[in-house]
């Protein structure tokens, strides 16, 4: 029907499959997010370290280039691609994703709650699960692009330069990169969404995403000192993730807590965030 014809007519066309509708939310969210110049610049900055790593891997596998620049060979031999390179990569990119989440996460759910838009989403053939999945996929897509995707690209570059023997011996690094980052992204996304759902003021929610890690670390250290235990470290989510990553990358590091306890801690954090989200994402607000 033409635009100028102003009489009401019912829609007669086809409908999209129900499973694909949760992808509508990230499309609109990304359209809005990329309007922010700061976000675009910060997102680009997230790729500086991976680009540096590409250069490092290339040079480590092509020492003759260093010789041509007059750098002596023993100095060049220092450049080696080891699992620690990928662990450091995890650390640096995790820091970037942490800041990225604090910037993007709070703007996902809180505006819908502030403006009372939940009934509009949920009065359609669109469930709460799809809503949460849709909002979460924004962070999952965004964070994946700066974490495991470039991580695996680095691995592929190294594998192509170092040859099959290296690849066969270090294939576990690819798995560790993927699993380590997936757990991190999952925890970070759920935490950001839960805070976004419960704290309507975006700036406060963003601050709290940062605060959860700092406050947890401080409180955990205090608990360790007062109670003379190591379990306070479980409140320090950075240490918890470092414990998991150390195990995944076979790095001998003792944070004072077991890997099993760290996995349980991550599971509890994710489950709590999910519970908070489900309680908050409703078509109407229950006023007691």
């Amino acid at each position: 029907m033409a635009v100028y014809k102003r009489t009401y007519a019912a829609y007669q066309g086809s409908f999209t499959p129900a499973w694909s509708r949760f992808l509508i939310l990230p499309r609109y969210s990304f359209a809005r997010l990329w309007q922010s110049r700061f976000l675009v610049m910060f997102f680009m900055a997230c790729f500086f370290y991976p680009l540096g790593c590409v250069g490092y891997i290339y040079l480590a596998n092509n020492l003759s280039i260093l010789s041509s620049f007059g750098i002596p060979e023993p100095l060049g031999n220092v450049l080696k691609v080891q699992p620690s390179l990928f662990l450091y990569f995890c650390w640096v990119q995790a820091a970037f994703t942490y800041l990225l989440t604090a910037f993007v996460g709070p703007s996902l759910i809180s505006p819908d709650l502030v403006n009372g838009a939940m009934p509009l989403y949920l009065c359609r053939p669109f469930s709460r699960t799809e809503y949460i999945a849709g909002k979460m996929s924004v962070l999952v897509f965004l964070l994946s692009l700066v974490t495991w995707v470039p991580g695996l690209i680095l691995f592929v570059i190294q594998a192509s330069l170092a040859g099959w023997e290296w690849t066969k011996a270090n294939l576990w690094i690819a798995g560790s990169l993927f699993i380590g980052f997936t757990v991190w992204i999952l925890m970070l996304s759920l935490l950001a969404l839960a805070l976004s759902a419960w704290i309507k003021w975006k700036i406060a929610a963003g601050g709290l995403v940062l605060g959860v890690f700092f406050a947890g670390a401080g409180f955990g250290t205090a608990l360790n000192s007062v109670m003379r235990t190591q379990y306070g470290t479980l409140l320090n989510l950075t240490e918890v993730m470092f414990t998991i990553w150390s195990k995944l990358f076979r790095w001998p590091e003792d944070t004072g807590i077991s890997v099993e306890a760290s996995w349980i801690c991550v599971g509890v954090v994710c489950a709590t965030c999910l519970w908070l989200l489900v309680r908050r994402v409703r078509a109407f607000e229950v006023v007691k």
Partner: peptide
């Protein structure tokens, strides 16, 4: 809102 109700992108 139309897309969430199942309408294709262009429609």
């Amino acid at each position: 809102m139309g897309e969430l109700a199942g309408l294709p992108h262009d429609a």
